[in-house]
Amino acid sequence: MSEREAGEPWAFHPDASLQSVLDAPDCPALLRSALTGVYSYQLRTQTTVSRTLRAFQLMPQWIAALLALGASVGLEQEDGVREVPLDRLGRLTSNGDIAALYIPLPDSACRWGEAHVARTPSDEPIVAAFAWVKLRGRLVQAARVALTGVWPEGVRLATSEHALVGEPLTVEQIRALAGRIQDRVEPVGDYRGSEEYRRAMAGAMSRRALKACMEPGGSDA
């Protein structure tokens, strides 16, 4: 991790290991949650940031957490480094070498939540949701929800988070949003969870992750 000024996003070298991200003293709790449990010490040590960014399905919870935090990627271009939101990375046809991963610094107005369902506590989740909300007073200034296990490509940022912006973060709002996410996901069933089950869990996990954002504990502040 490079030195950063106050208010600047973190910048990680593409060859940085995920363990080094976790070891960073002020690693956001949302990333800590994503990097422990399912992903082992060995996997974190031997896996570089760039490897995970080139293949989202390799470590989808980590990617989902990054998406929720609004991470972006610096791409080497002929005219220098171009910053691209992480959720656009997979859609770029010619994306160049990854120069850096930028992770916005959560501040005291940011809340986060994570929820997942799995066969066992440290099994790869069947469905996982990572939510991030920035509040101004009682109103939502920005919000993002990323889900794993409910998309053909494994992990994606849910697009309906704008529905919360400008509204107070209430149970009713959360439920409505979770319902819309549940309708929108495109799960592919497998032996760990059918399409029907994954769709239901998309709603439940989104709701839980967002509800966690209502709690004071769901914050790095």
Binding site: G37, T120, P121, S122, E124, D190, Y191
Partner: peptide, 15 residues
């Protein structure tokens, strides 16, 4: 469909 220890899943130390 799950001929690997990961997807098959054997209990780990932390769970």
């Amino acid at each position: 469909l799950n001929p690997r220890l990961g997807p098959y899943h054997v209990y780990k130390a932390d769970e």
